[in-house]
Amino acid sequence: MRWLIAVSIILVLLLSVIPLPFVWQQWRPEFMALLVIYWATYSPDYFGVFMAWVSGILLDVVELLPLGYHSLGLIIIAYLANLAYQRIRSYALWQQAVWVFILVGIYQLLCNWVSGLMNKPIETNEFLIAAVFTAFLWPLWVMTFRMIRIRFRIP
């Protein structure tokens, strides 16, 4: 379990820095938010607010941003996902995707708030595109990890 979490964090860090043209960058799905929501919903015993904070700091280091930029948003969505995991897990995947969309929206709101503190221009509607892409990725992500966990007998 722990190694799977570590490997998925490393893979997500890699996905977050895959070079894209400047104009496409705002459409990059928020992979780290997806990961945090997944682990906090499906393995709340192993992945809580602290792990969300650690992965946020790692993302800040890799993305060359001030430390804590992503952590703030990630700990809040990890907390929300941890609160609601029993109910969310009983929903269908597409219904879960709506929940993911809302959480990623909150996460991006907080990231944009930090950007605002740094006097960066704030994108208006574009960040919602990334949230929609992330929500579309959710069923794919859950199914992939379900397969991996069955294959390697991880509870």
Binding site: L13, L14, V17, I18, P19, V61, V62, E63, L64, P66, L67, G68, M118
Partner: peptide, 28 residues
């Protein structure tokens, strides 16, 4: 913190080395 004070700057220089392999791999 890193933006308003210089205390973390030396630390930052070292931990940024951590990000290098990710960019190398992403550039393959």
């Amino acid at each position: 913190m890193a933006r308003y004070t210089g205390y973390l700057a030396p630390l930052r220089n070292h931990i940024d080395t951590f990000s290098t392999p990710f960019y190398w791999v992403a550039n393959i």
